Amino acid sequence: MAPFLSTYFLVLISAQLVKSSGVFELKVHSFTTTSSSSSVCKEYRDCQVFFRVCLNYTQDVISYRLACSNGTGLTGTFSTDQSSISTSAPITVPFNLKWLGTVSVIIEAWNTESSNDQSAENLNSMISHFATKRDLTIGEKWSQDVHLGEQSKLRFSYRVVCDEFYYGDDCTDFCRSRDDPFGHFNCDAAGNRVCLPKWKGDYCAEPICSSGCSEEHGYCEAPGQCRCNYGWQGPRCDECMPHPGCMHGTCKQPWQCMCDEGWHGLLCDKGRND
C-alpha cells in the first residue's frame, strides 16, 4: 500500500476510534395537572404545553433548569382540552462524547402562548419540574418511571442507544461495513469486524493468497494470487532460483549452485574427467 494511503488509513481509523455517538430518548406517556395550577394557566384547557429535557453529567443531582451542559431536547407544542396529554415521538438529546453512564435528567413542562413560541426563559410559565440522577446503560429496552409533583403527575420512559455504526457500553466502538482499498468487512451485532471471504487482518485489508502459496517467500496483492519474492519461483513460490548459468546443480537458497553427483565447478558444468 502506498505511504500516502497508509497514512490516510491510519488517520481515518484513529478519528473513528476517538469519536463516539449516541442519543438519549425520552417519551412522555401522560402528563396531568390539577386545576390549582392556575398560576401558570388560567384554565388548563387553555394551555399549550411543550416539554424540555436537559442532561448533565455529574456526581450530584442538578435540579436547576440552567444545568443543560450536556445537551437539551424539546417536543412540539400540544394544544389540548383534556386533563392528560402525551407525546408520540420521543424527545431526543444527542451526545458526541463518551457515554459515562451516570447522568442528571431534568424534565420540564412549559406553557406557551403560541405554538411558534417555545421560550423557556420565563420561569412563571413552567408548569412542572423534575430532576433525578440515573445510571443508564446502553440498550434498546425502555425504562419506565413516574414523577408525582405537587400539582402534576408525569409518566415517562427513557433509554440510551448508540447511533448507527457505533457500538459498545459507551458508544465508542465504530464499525461501518466497507469493501474498498481500506478494508473488506461487515459488522456483527456487537460491532466486531467480520472479514469478507478471501480477506484477513485486523481491518480485513490483507488478501488471502492462493492455496499453498508460501507465506515466507510469496505474497499477493489481490485474493487468489501468489507472487514470488525475489529469488523464488514456482506456482507456490517455494522453489529457489539457482545461480544464473548453473548447469547440473540445485539450490536450497537463492543463487546457490549445489552440484549433482558427477559434476563440479562454479556452475556445475565440469564432469569428472574435466
Rank of each mutant, 00 (worst) to 15 (best):
T33G: 07
T33H: 09
T34N: 07
T34M: 00
S35F: 04
S35T: 15
S36A: 15
S37I: 03
S37H: 15
S37T: 08
S37Y: 02
S37D: 15
S38G: 12
S38E: 10
S39D: 13
C41D: 08
C41M: 03
E43M: 01
Y44E: 10
Y44C: 07
R45Q: 09
D46F: 13
D46P: 13
C47H: 10
Q48L: 04
Q48F: 06
V49K: 04
F51K: 00
F51N: 06
F51E: 10
F51G: 04
C54R: 01
C54N: 14
N56H: 12
Y57H: 09
Y57V: 10
T58Q: 06
T58H: 08
Q59E: 13
D60G: 03
V61D: 02
V61N: 04
S63G: 09
S63N: 02
Y64M: 01
Y64G: 00
R65D: 11
A67K: 06
A67P: 07
A67L: 08
C68K: 07
C68A: 05
S69C: 15
S69H: 13
N70V: 06
G71L: 02
G71M: 00
G71I: 01
G71S: 05
T72P: 09
T72F: 02
G73A: 05
L74N: 11
T75G: 03
G76P: 02
G76R: 14
T77V: 12
F78L: 14
F78A: 08
S79Y: 08
T80R: 06
Q82C: 00
S84Y: 05
S84T: 15
I85P: 03
I85E: 13
S86C: 14
S88H: 08
S88M: 10
S88W: 10
A89Q: 15
I91Y: 08
I91V: 12
T92P: 05
V93M: 07
V93L: 13
F95R: 01
L97Y: 10
L97N: 14
W99N: 02
W99A: 05
W99L: 04
L100I: 13
G101A: 01
T102R: 00
V103G: 13
V103L: 05
S104L: 00
S104Q: 11
V105D: 04
V105A: 03
I106W: 04
I106T: 10
I106F: 05
I106G: 15
I107Y: 00
A109G: 11
A109Q: 07
W110C: 07
W110F: 10
W110H: 12
T112W: 02
T112R: 03
T112S: 06
S114E: 09
D117E: 12
S119Q: 04
S119F: 11
S119M: 04
A120H: 14
A120E: 09
